[in-house]
Computed example of a mutant assay.
Amino acid sequence: MENKLVIWAGAAVNKQAIEKGIKEKLSGDYLIKERELTATESGFRFLFDDETGSDIEISFSQEQDFLTVYVSGNCSWDVVRLYEEILAMLPDEEGAA
């Protein structure tokens, strides 16, 4: 996967909740069902667009109660689209400057 964007989700975000939310978004907006997702060591991957062969991998890293979400893929425009949608799902941090 040549294109990768990183989201530092913060300490207040629950990995299981954000993963479930992403899967629901994929199912609702893109008709990508959970059975089409392939589990990876730290997340899952799937075929996002069969016309372009766009593969996406979403992975998670939890260190000291701080969640990081990685969106990787071979088509940059798809990576950016999913990155923005996942970022919009996260709660705004109060008091952020």
Rank of each mutant, 00 (worst) to 15 (best):
A9Q: 01
A9H: 04
G10Q: 05
G10P: 04
G10V: 00
A11H: 10
A11V: 04
V13S: 07
K15D: 02
A17Y: 01
I18E: 13
I18W: 10
E19D: 05
E19N: 02
E19G: 03
I22G: 07
I22R: 10
I22T: 11
K23P: 05
E24P: 04
E24S: 14
E24K: 10
E24W: 03
E24G: 05
L26W: 13
L26C: 07
S27C: 15
S27H: 13
S27I: 05
D29Q: 13
D29I: 00
D29N: 06
Y30I: 02
L31A: 14
L31C: 07
I32S: 13
I32L: 13
K33A: 05
R35K: 14
R35Q: 05
L37G: 05
T38E: 15
A39H: 12
A39Q: 15
E41F: 09
E41M: 08
E41T: 04
S42G: 02
S42K: 06
F44N: 11
F44C: 00
F46G: 08
F48I: 02
F48R: 02
D49A: 09
D49F: 13
D49L: 02
E51L: 05
E51Y: 13
E51I: 06
T52A: 11
T52M: 01
G53H: 07
G53D: 13
G53N: 10
S54P: 03
S54A: 15
D55M: 06
D55Q: 13
I56Q: 07
E57Q: 09
S59C: 08
F60D: 09
F60T: 06
Q62T: 03
Q62R: 00
E63C: 00
E63P: 00
E63I: 08
Q64D: 11
Q64W: 00
D65L: 11
D65K: 08
D65W: 03
D65I: 00
D65E: 08
F66R: 06
L67N: 08
L67Y: 06
T68D: 12
T68G: 09
T68R: 09
T68S: 12
V69E: 14
V69Q: 11
V71A: 13
S72R: 15
S72A: 10
S72K: 09
G73W: 11
S76W: 05
S76K: 14
S76M: 07
S76H: 13
S76L: 15
W77I: 10
W77A: 10
D78L: 03
D78I: 06
V79E: 07
V79T: 01
V79K: 04
V79M: 03
V80I: 15
V80Y: 13
V80K: 14
R81S: 09
L82T: 04
E84V: 07
E85D: 15
I86K: 02
L87P: 00
M89A: 15
M89E: 13
M89K: 09
L90R: 05
L90C: 11
P91G: 03
P91S: 04
P91D: 10
